[in-house]
């Protein structure tokens, strides 16, 4: 009996290791090939490099316009996620607390956006009218808009679990709606907000189609497009491509590792318990 439990647990441990390995193999592959020479990396495999080529990274930073695009990505992802969370939380707050017929309809109407396919053709016209085409502000607004439905959905569920007595206490203390929301409610939303922030930050950081079509200057390109551009030019040098990829995904991997607790906890709260 004990023996069979040990074997069972051994099998489980081995299985889970194999699966974890499959999940990270591509990243490891990039990691190893990023420090090889061109010829060593011509077939991407796990053979170790003869000498670690750190200079690949300096080459890549110079040629790949990485510092520029890093700042762009950081700006696009953080501003759009921040603003999105604020306006989504404000909307979700009123939608939860004041469930009129209209508001219930508006809630459904907004979260239908999760399903809405983006129309890239006509969006160009809208961007032109609003003078946002080819601007950083424009791309930030677009990212923000694409994240609104999902953010409202998660925060809506979370606010529902906050007792309404909080609001009443606030009113008795003489709060207006703005003070009530910003000094009482919003701080209580912290777990949901962190989750939404991380998820929308990651989504935005990884997206590439919107800037490809709606930004026309390489100066404004985010990191994903910089990789695309780089791959176009250096397709033969897999070591440089790998180094470029590694530097691109490093920030998100770090954010992910730091925030993984919130991602997992937050997704649980928002999407399952509601």
């Amino acid at each position: 009996m004990i023996k069979s439990i040990v074997i069972k647990s051994l099998i489980q441990n081995i299985t889970v290791w194999i699966i974890s390995l499959i999940a990270v193999i591509p990243v490891l592959l990039i990691f190893i090939n990023a420090v090889k020479t061109v010829s060593e990396s011509s077939s991407m495999n796990f053979a170790l490099p003869r000498r670690i080529q750190f200079e690949n990274f300096t080459t890549v930073i110079e040629k790949g316009k990485l510092s520029h695009s890093f700042l762009n990505s950081l700006m696009y992802s953080s501003i759009s996620s921040f603003v999105c969370i604020f306006i989504s939380a404000m909307a979700a707050f009123v939608l939860v607390r004041n469930r009129t017929r209209l508001n219930r309809f508006l809630y459904l109407f907004i979260i239908m956006g999760i399903a809405l396919p983006l129309n890239y053709f006509t969006l160009i016209d809208v961007m032109k009218w609003t003078e946002l085409l080819n601007t950083r502000a424009g791309i930030i607004v677009l990212y923000m808009v694409t994240q609104i439905p999902f953010s409202v959905f998660i925060i809506y569920g979370f606010i529902g679990s906050l007792p309404k007595e909080l609001d009443e206490a606030g009113v008795i203390d003489g709060c207006g709606p703005k003070r009530l929301f910003f000094s009482v409610i919003f701080p209580m939303l912290q777990p949901a907000v962190v989750t939404v922030f991380i998820l929308s930050f990651l989504n935005t950081w990884n997206e590439f189609v919107l800037p490809l079509y709606y930004l026309n200057s390489a100066q404004k390109w985010p990191m994903t497009l910089a990789v695309y551009n780089f791959f176009g030019q250096f397709q033969q040098s897999w070591n440089l491509v790998s180094a470029d990829i590694l530097l691109t995904i490093l920030p998100i991997v770090i954010i992910y590792l730091l925030g993984q607790r919130f991602i997992i906890a937050g997704m649980t709260n928002g999407s399952v318990k509601g």
């Binding site: 306006i87 989504s88 404000m90 909307a91 707050f93 009123v94 939608l95 607390r97 004041n98 508001n103 508006l106 907004i110 956006g113 809405l116 396919p117 983006l118 129309n119 006509t122 969006l123 016209d125 809208v126 609003t130 607004v141 677009l142 923000m144 808009v145 694409t146 609104i148 439905p149 409202v152 609001d167 009113v171 709606p177 009530l180 929301f181």
Partner: peptide, 22 residues
């Protein structure tokens, strides 16, 4: 306490950049 403009900001963005193009 629950003014409509709290919804309106998100709603306007959503309307202009997602619903109208569709």
């Amino acid at each position: 306490m629950y003014p409509f403009y709290f919804i309106a900001i998100a709603l306007v963005f959503y309307l202009v950049f997602a619903v109208i193009p569709s």
